[in-house]
Lab assay of single mutants.
Amino acid sequence: MQGVVKVNSALNMRSGPGSNYGVIGTLRNNDKVEIIKEVDGWYEIRFNGKVGYASKSYITIVN
């Protein structure tokens, strides 16, 4: 499943599904990501070869 990031500035990509996990990357508005699965309001995603987590509130699913 594919998604597009929708933010005003930047979205942190984290090592786990929560804001208490470390930041491993930064996503920008309109970045395209691969959604692997949903975990407690977060998406596990793949972006630029990295796998991490981002809040699903800021990612819109596209077909």
Rank of each mutant, 00 (worst) to 15 (best):
residue 1 M to K: 08
residue 2 Q to G: 09
residue 2 Q to Y: 12
residue 2 Q to W: 15
residue 4 V to G: 02
residue 4 V to W: 04
residue 5 V to G: 05
residue 5 V to S: 02
residue 6 K to S: 12
residue 6 K to D: 07
residue 7 V to Y: 05
residue 7 V to W: 04
residue 8 N to D: 15
residue 8 N to V: 14
residue 9 S to F: 14
residue 9 S to L: 13
residue 9 S to P: 07
residue 9 S to D: 14
residue 10 A to W: 10
residue 10 A to K: 07
residue 10 A to Y: 12
residue 11 L to V: 12
residue 11 L to D: 03
residue 12 N to V: 12
residue 12 N to L: 12
residue 12 N to A: 09
residue 12 N to Q: 10
residue 13 M to I: 10
residue 13 M to P: 02
residue 13 M to D: 00
residue 14 R to V: 10
residue 14 R to N: 07
residue 15 S to A: 12
residue 15 S to D: 15
residue 15 S to M: 08
residue 15 S to C: 05
residue 16 G to C: 03
residue 16 G to D: 02
residue 16 G to T: 02
residue 16 G to K: 03
residue 16 G to I: 01
residue 17 P to W: 01
residue 17 P to K: 02
residue 17 P to L: 02
residue 17 P to H: 02
residue 18 G to I: 00
residue 21 Y to G: 03
residue 21 Y to E: 04
residue 21 Y to F: 14
residue 21 Y to A: 04
residue 23 V to F: 04
residue 23 V to Q: 06
residue 24 I to G: 02
residue 25 G to K: 07
residue 25 G to P: 00
residue 25 G to T: 09
residue 26 T to Q: 09
residue 26 T to C: 06
residue 27 L to M: 10
residue 27 L to W: 01
residue 27 L to Q: 01
residue 28 R to S: 15
residue 28 R to A: 12
residue 29 N to Y: 09
residue 29 N to R: 06
residue 29 N to H: 12
residue 30 N to V: 03
residue 31 D to V: 06
residue 32 K to H: 14
residue 32 K to G: 08
residue 33 V to K: 00
residue 33 V to E: 00
residue 34 E to C: 04
residue 34 E to P: 03
residue 35 I to K: 01
residue 35 I to D: 00
residue 36 I to N: 07
residue 36 I to L: 12
residue 36 I to M: 09
residue 36 I to H: 06
residue 37 K to R: 09
residue 37 K to T: 13
residue 38 E to M: 06
residue 38 E to S: 07
residue 39 V to F: 08
residue 39 V to T: 08
residue 41 G to D: 12
residue 43 Y to V: 05
residue 43 Y to C: 04
residue 43 Y to D: 00
residue 44 E to N: 11
residue 44 E to Q: 09
residue 45 I to L: 10
residue 45 I to V: 12
residue 46 R to T: 15
residue 46 R to W: 15
residue 46 R to G: 10
residue 47 F to Y: 11
residue 48 N to D: 12
residue 50 K to G: 08
residue 51 V to Y: 12
residue 52 G to E: 00
residue 52 G to Y: 03
residue 54 A to I: 10
residue 54 A to Q: 03
residue 55 S to W: 10
residue 55 S to P: 08
residue 56 K to P: 05
residue 56 K to D: 04
residue 56 K to G: 07
residue 56 K to S: 10
residue 57 S to K: 12
residue 58 Y to D: 12
residue 58 Y to A: 13
residue 58 Y to M: 12
residue 58 Y to L: 08
residue 59 I to T: 02
residue 59 I to E: 00
residue 59 I to R: 00
residue 59 I to F: 05
residue 59 I to K: 00
residue 60 T to M: 14
residue 60 T to C: 06
residue 61 I to W: 04
residue 61 I to K: 08
residue 61 I to S: 05
residue 62 V to L: 13
residue 62 V to D: 14
residue 62 V to H: 11
residue 62 V to K: 08
